[in-house]
Amino acid sequence: MADETPFILSQYGSLKELEKFARELPKIELHAHLNGSLSPETLQYLVDIKKEEKPHLTNFKIPKKRLDTINEFFLIFDFIYQLTDDEETVAYITEAVIRDFHKDGVKYLELRSTPRKNESKGMTGESYVRAIISTIQKFPSSECDIIVRLILSISRKDSLEEAMETADLAIKYKKAGVVGVDLCSDPSRGHIDNVKPAFVKAKSHGLKVTLHFGEIESNMLEHASMLTIPPDRVGHATYLDPYSRDYILSNKLPIEICMTSNVTCNTVKDYNEHHIKSFLSMEHPCCLGVSVSAVTPPSF
């Protein structure tokens, strides 16, 4: 008679032991948005210290676990950006996020973030980047053994001038730990061709390129242009046209897979139907995102 003991019990003894095993397993994290990886504790701390200046932030409610559309996700970022609006706070969240990933067993971490400005606080895109880098340079240490690198993100909504500024910052701080550039933000807005020269320039200076790719079905119209950069990795790859699918498979282009984010943002129906299955069945290189935040979809 076949053993009908549930897999978790037969292999790990209990769900608690499985969680312990998963946390202790050494990991890499390649798709971690800085402002999208804040824990509930970090968010609450920031609300508490900013509430006198911005009392409306106390009305923020933890969103439901499953969003109706991916667009709702970016409203969460709008709230978070109001909290992380100066260099001191940016440095604080950088250290908090690194320590949270370290607790999850991550040994190599690539954070990513768009250089943000706030004239009222004197924060420039460059001072934003420096605040992150100066914090990253504290690690690894005997207290927290983790290697951290930085990817600078270019928003799909950016003008070409803004995109080139980010590419120039990435080039300038390459020796300080910036390893690449990313295309990010609301996939329903903007077009790769508007900012593409910035990626070409960054790549010509030896930086790597990763692109949020095929998050929604309409993005497939951009894929052919994206692949001419060409990227070194792509994120999500939820919707693929035949050409881009063949390109990714034939070139063994690694995919950053964020299962929790995909299901939470409702771009994938559920875990049973997740597209990672087809890639793993073909032994295609994939990297799973690690969940550290219970508030925002992790590693989006």
Rank of each mutant, 00 (worst) to 15 (best):
K51Q: 11
E161D: 14
Y108D: 04
L83M: 14
I93E: 00
I146K: 04
R156A: 02
K103F: 05
E110C: 01
L67M: 15
A163C: 08
E72N: 09
E87N: 15
S153Y: 08
M123D: 02
E87D: 15
Y92P: 03
K64E: 13
S155H: 12
F139Y: 15
T124I: 10
P55K: 07
E161H: 13
K50R: 15
G125H: 07
M123L: 11
D48F: 01
H102G: 01
R149W: 05
F139V: 09
L150I: 03
K65S: 13
K51H: 07
V129D: 10
I154N: 10
P140L: 07
I151Q: 09
T84A: 14
P55V: 07
L67Q: 15
I49G: 04
S142L: 13
I76K: 08
E110M: 02
F60L: 07
A170I: 08
K107R: 05
I80K: 03
C144P: 01
V129K: 07
E52C: 04
I147S: 00
L109H: 04
L109Q: 01
A163E: 09
R116S: 13
L67S: 12
K121H: 10
I154F: 10
L75I: 13
V106T: 05
T94N: 05
V106A: 00
I132Y: 06
S120P: 02
E53K: 15
Q82W: 02
R130S: 11
I76R: 08
R156Q: 03
I171L: 03
L169W: 06
A91V: 04
I171C: 02
T89P: 01
E52D: 12
I80A: 07
E143D: 14
N71I: 15
I132L: 08
E143I: 00
L160V: 06
F73E: 04
E53T: 14
I98Y: 04
L160D: 05
E161W: 00
S153I: 06
D68Q: 14
D78W: 06
F139C: 10
H56V: 11
I133H: 10
I151G: 06
L75D: 14
E143Y: 03
A131R: 05
P140K: 09
T69M: 06
I154H: 11
F77W: 02
E52A: 10
L83F: 12
A131S: 15
